[in-house]
């Protein structure tokens, strides 16, 4: 089943008087349960593509459909609800709230969705177990290593049980060993929990954890 679809996607940024074409006529389709790695050098437009898929940015032209819903036709509230329920984000720099504990960070999307915390207690326990942070639940991000922080970010992305996980350079800020552990974790989540994962990376090793690679260069998809 097709879960993500981009059609004739273009994105242009204005830099002073200049129009920079970051993405040019991108077309792609991702099936449910796939683990796709978008690869490309710096400035190729791969992160922009990911943000357009996640609805964090608007395309200059073209369309993105998530689970058959056209993003550009959605209001802010509908897009926000989609990001809460259907998508989980993982960023290179983790983007955790520094003054909240691990479990408070993980549970944030639940809070945003207006759900009751007590209904999510057991799920929180499960997720923390999956990412291996059950014993660190009361710590704040400041007290965790980079790898542990990224695990918190992954747990947070999973808490609302979205179908899609979008990861932007998830191991870009980590050492090799920790990076491998994180990639293995993502792979496990893809296989065991059947989540569709789209990651952006410039590392071939990281890309190989997925089952499909999309190469982006100069704003275009190659091969």
């Amino acid at each position: 089943m097709q879960i993500i679809e981009a059609k004739n996607l273009n994105k242009t940024f204005k830099m002073g008087d200049l129009d920079i074409e970051v993405l040019k006529d991108i077309n792609l389709s991702i099936e449910s349960g796939e683990f796709v790695s978008i690869m490309g050098p710096s400035g190729s437009g791969k992160s922009t593509l990911l943000y357009l898929i996640g609805g964090l940015d608007k395309p200059t032209s073209g369309s993105v459909k998530i689970k058959g819903n056209e993003l550009s036709e959605m209001k802010d509230k509908e897009q926000s609800i989609m990001r809460r329920r259907d998508i989980g984000f993982v960023f290179q720099f983790y983007n955790l709230i520094p003054n909240l504990s691990v479990e408070e960070n993980v549970i944030l999307p639940v809070l945003l969705d207006g759900k009751k915390l007590k209904d999510y207690r057991s799920r929180l326990d499960d997720i923390l177990e999956v990412v291996g942070l059950a014993d660190r639940r009361t710590h704040t991000p400041r007290e965790l290593s980079g790898g542990q922080q990224q695990r918190v970010a992954i747990a947070r992305a999973l808490v609302n049980e979205p179908d899609i996980i979008l990861a932007d350079e998830p191991i870009g800020n980590l050492d090799t060993k920790t990076g491998t552990e994180i990639m293995q974790l993502l792979q496990r989540i893809n296989r065991e929990k059947k989540k569709t994962i789209v990651q952006v990376t410039h590392s071939k090793e990281a890309a190989d954890y997925g089952n499909r690679i999309i190469n982006v260069r100069d704003g275009k998809v190659w091969g």
Partner: peptide, 15 residues
């Protein structure tokens, strides 16, 4: 940064 993060997680403008 944290507000943007909230937005990326699905916090609406109204929220």
């Amino acid at each position: 940064r944290s507000l943007a993060m909230f937005r990326s997680m699905g916090m609406s403008k109204g929220q």
